[in-house]
């Protein structure tokens, strides 16, 4: 039986221990579930709850690759959640048959990752209009920054992009939002 988790142990150490004692991973869940849940539900509505739960299962399966020296698994979990959200939105847009084909590179398309009907519904007309023309990697970085309160470095860890790229993406996305707000009358936003 797993002993109670000591307070103060970093996520990396916990995850390393969970290799031999899988139940220890529950402590990682306890630490991060509320935030990952909030982010996923915010972006995907009720389905976000299942996506958040799935993010922890995916993380558990990939735990052997987590850097045990890392104190905070939050960015890693947000990265998995973001990937799941993107895949889920893409699946909603394309349909199951097309989704199955999406594993073939020649079938992928940036517009598949653009705002789907479901995502646009969830965001509401104001946000959807402001975010629709922003490329998905830029939008993902912006929302991790604005809604998950991750730093540039944490977003880099979450998305696997260089820190400078993250900065550029967020700046670009914010510039596009600002431009949209500047050129769109308030009652049409």
């Amino acid at each position: 039986m797993t002993p109670p988790t000591r307070i103060g142990i970093g996520d990396g150490a916990l995850i390393a221990r969970s290799i031999d004692d899988p139940a220890v991973f529950a402590a990682v869940f306890d630490r991060h579930w509320p935030r990952i849940h909030r982010f996923c539900v915010s972006r995907a509505g009720a389905a976000g709850e299942d996506l958040a739960a799935e993010a922890f299962r995916v993380a558990f399966d990939g735990r052997a690759r987590f850097d045990a020296t890392q104190e905070d698994a939050g960015p890693w979990l947000y990265g998995i959640a973001t990937n799941l959200l993107r895949r889920w939105f893409r699946g909603q847009a394309r349909g199951a048959a097309a989704l199955a084909r999406s594993d073939r590179p020649q079938e992928r398309d940036p517009v598949d990752d653009a705002l789907s009907r479901v995502e646009a519904s969830r965001l509401g007309p104001e946000l959807a209009a402001a975010l629709a023309a922003i490329a998905t990697p830029d939008r993902d970085a912006l929302l991790l920054y604005a809604w998950a309160d991750l730093t540039y470095e944490q977003i880099a860890q979450a998305t696997g992009a260089p820190v400078g790229t993250v900065r550029s993406r967020i700046h670009r996305a914010r510039a596009q939002v600002r431009a949209h707000l500047t050129t769109t009358p308030e009652d049409h936003r």
């Binding site: 799935e54 995916v58 399966d61 052997a64 990937n83």
Partner: peptide
């Protein structure tokens, strides 16, 4: 666009469509 889901993450069980 990642070519499918990375091996180490496994194939996700995608949830049902949202009720809106």
């Amino acid at each position: 666009s990642p070519p499918g889901f990375p091996d180490h993450m496994g194939e996700p069980g995608l949830p049902h469509a949202d009720e809106v």
